[in-house]
Nucleic acid binder design. Structure first.
Lengths: 212, 212
DNA sequence: TTTTCTATTGTCCCATGGGACAATGCGAAC
DNA sequence: GTTCGCATTGTCCCATGGGACAATAGAAAA
């Protein structure tokens, strides 16, 4: 699998050594001497990639950079490199979503295996996120009123029930509902519900009572 | 939060020491001198619990026990205790779902914090699994034919389309569909789709074409 | 001020979903 | 052999969803 490896490490000779190894293995490489440098020119995620990140670096630490990236919505997988074995840090990193944690010196085999897995993971995650983005983009186009109707319809309310709930005529709801289906680009209620479920709406499974 | 801590460690004195500390903290405790002993009398998950598991123990190792438990559907959280810092093992354990990995000697604060988090996690997971079990139990009651109808209906197919697809009359599908709604205990298509989505059916979002 | 977006509601008409009341045929279990 | 579960299909009838064709009104933007 091809992709770009973003090496973040303050040790010049280490960066160079790893870079050489990775280029030889067929990967694109970008290097950064600090976390800030990576934040300054954020990798474009239209390209598959992985961040090789040293845990302890001057300025923002590895885990701190991980937090920042997560906050800004990055899904670039991170493979940590650490000079010494620190269980506490390792646990936190993995729980925070790190792809792997390797100890220096790292064997090429370990490194390449981790990178391959990370790239595969990145690809899968991108797929998921793209689907989500599409759905969310559609939802964003709904007007406030349409959004209200949407919320009730995906919970199984009939037009009549929605009409009562929102204080409008059944005919009106019908119109809103029609535009919701259009904007969400679905042809059936089933699809609409699927989308909603995947977009994280519908967390709780209540709203089943009927108020004719 | 109350709950039972299952200590698995071959070191008698260690088990006793930890047990004393935990009982003092208000937890129920069960001890096992080997992984096999725990497998022999599996903790009942109707009670909140957590497994305190030593990584290296004679017989089945900690991670191996973790694998076994996972296979048999256990969702008891596991907090690993390890004598020495092994990043490789730690990463695998966490990725395999371990709640935490602590190094011996472990401070009471660390231990109690980890246990509390594990118990809270167990409670949340049980909730999720119970919902899932209910849905799956309902699905299990469907006859093969009803299951086929179910699969198509939740993908937005109309009775007519399902009838064509399965080579039956619209009336027949109507009958099956009715029984599906009954057995799944839902009143609306929206609910049916929600359940299906949560039960893991509907992974791919295809099946949108129409063949009147 | 004029255009545009949003919300609202109407009437007709048809397709689809769903309940009520029934019935037939076929294997498998008893 | 009889019972039981399962699949199948019918007819009526009504509620609901959804398309077609239109129209009104207020608010915000150009």
């Amino acid at each position: 699998m091809t992709g770009r490896v973003h090496i973040v490490d303050d040790d010049d000779s280490f960066r160079t050594a790893i870079e050489r190894r990775l280029r030889k293995a067929g990967y694109e490489v970008a290097t950064y001497s600090s976390a800030q440098h990576l934040l300054d020119r954020l990798p474009n995620e239209s390209e598959l990639g992985v961040i090789l990140l040293d845990v302890r670096i001057p300025g923002l630490s590895g885990p701190e950079l991980q937090g920042r990236l997560s906050e800004i919505g990055s899904i670039l997988p991170i493979v940590f490199l650490t000079g010494y074995a620190d269980v506490q840090t390792t646990v936190r990193a993995i729980k925070a979503g790190a792809e792997d944690v390797l100890t220096k010196p790292v064997s090429s085999e370990q490194l390449l295996t981790a990178i391959e897995r990370a790239l595969a993971h990145h690809e899968a995650m991108r797929g998921h996120r793209n689907q989500l983005d599409v759905v969310r983009a559609h939802i964003a186009k709904l007007t406030p009123r349409e959004r209200e109707v949407f919320e009730l319809v995906i919970r199984g309310k009939t037009n009549k029930q929605v009409a009562n709930a929102l204080g409008a005529t059944e005919r009106t709801i019908k119109a809103h509902r029609h535009r919701v289906m259009e904007k969400m680009q679905v042809q059936s209620l089933a699809e609409l519900v699927s989308f909603a479920e995947r977009a994280g709406i519908l967390k709780d499974l209540s709203g089943t009572e009927q108020t004719n």
